[in-house]
């Protein structure tokens, strides 16, 4: 009885979180006229028509997805590089200046991202870097470097210092120690830290809306155009786009589930 109750609770919770996603993915394979059929058809002849129309009617979609890929990769590399260097110092050393700078890292995490668009938009257009991958990479990295640093610090903390000392005795420099000794032992931390940046950069909307127009436009933006057309939303095409956009990131999250938990524990609760 108690177990049946738990199971039905779990079923309801899963329905709540998965149902909207499943509806969209399923509907993307339906012919246009059946999408709003009531009752919804679970059995239907699947078609790739929506995907065909996505390619022909929204030629910018896949180039925009490439932009998302470039920006996500760049932001992840930049974040993890900065975070590993800083995380190492916070894990290994103590001092008032370090404590102050660590506190500053936590503090800036509290500021709302939209605030920085006001000065940065005119500044970046003066530098003529608006609508470039660079702008989004730097912005995304800045807003996640703090969480990533905390995650890296937690993982580096678990690496025994003796290993480093041995390498130092053997005459290795600081960078060599980091690259050859520390980094290979904190791969899990790198994955956990990357994960949050990847999900954020792949899905981010506001900065992309403000700072990109055409050349560096990312996938969520072209999808928002599909959503806000004045002459009625073409749901079939939108669902095809949503499916293509969410499939890789969803697969990634499900595969890397345990890193999400490890990262949140190290980055949010302990930080």
């Amino acid at each position: 009885m108690w177990r049946a109750l738990r199971l039905s609770g779990a079923a309801a919770a899963i329905a709540w979180s998965v149902f909207p996603i499943a509806m969209v993915v399923l509907s993307s394979f339906k012919p246009q006229r059946e999408i709003f059929a009531i009752p919804p058809q679970l059995v239907f002849a699947p078609t790739l028509d929506n995907y065909r129309r996505l390619v022909t009617e929204w030629p910018a979609f896949f180039p925009n997805m490439l932009n998302s890929l470039i920006v996500t990769t760049g932001a992840t590399l930049l974040t993890v590089l900065c975070a590993t260097l800083a995380g190492y110092v916070y894990a290994r050393f103590r001092g008032r200046i370090l404590a102050l700078s660590a506190f500053f890292m936590v503090l800036v995490r509290m500021l709302p991202p939209i605030v920085v668009t006001l000065p940065l938009f005119p500044f970046f257009s003066w530098l003529q870097v608006n609508d470039t991958h660079f702008v989004l990479i730097v912005l995304y990295a800045a807003f996640f470097v703090s969480l990533a640093t905390w995650i890296m610090r937690a993982f580096i903390d678990q690496v025994p210092r003796e290993l480093e000392e041995a390498a130092l005795v053997d005459g290795a420099g600081l960078f060599q120690v980091l690259r050859m000794v520390v980094l290979p032992l904190v791969v899990n931390g790198v994955i956990a830290a990357s994960l949050f940046v990847i999900v954020y950069a792949w899905n981010e909307f506001i900065f992309a809306l403000v700072f990109t127009t055409r050349i560096a436009r990312t996938t969520p933006l072209v999808m928002s155009e599909m959503l806000s057309t004045t002459d009625g939303v073409d749901w079939g095409v939108l669902f095809a786009a949503a499916t293509v956009q969410l499939a890789p990131i969803l697969a990634f999250i499900l595969a890397a589930q345990r890193y999400v938990i490890a990262g949140l524990t190290a980055g949010a609760v302990k930080g």
Binding site: I21, P220, M223, I253
Partner: peptide, 10 residues
């Protein structure tokens, strides 16, 4: 945790 991976537009 699946919704965590979904962007706001979707």
């Amino acid at each position: 945790i699946a919704p965590y991976a979904i962007n706001e537009v979707s």
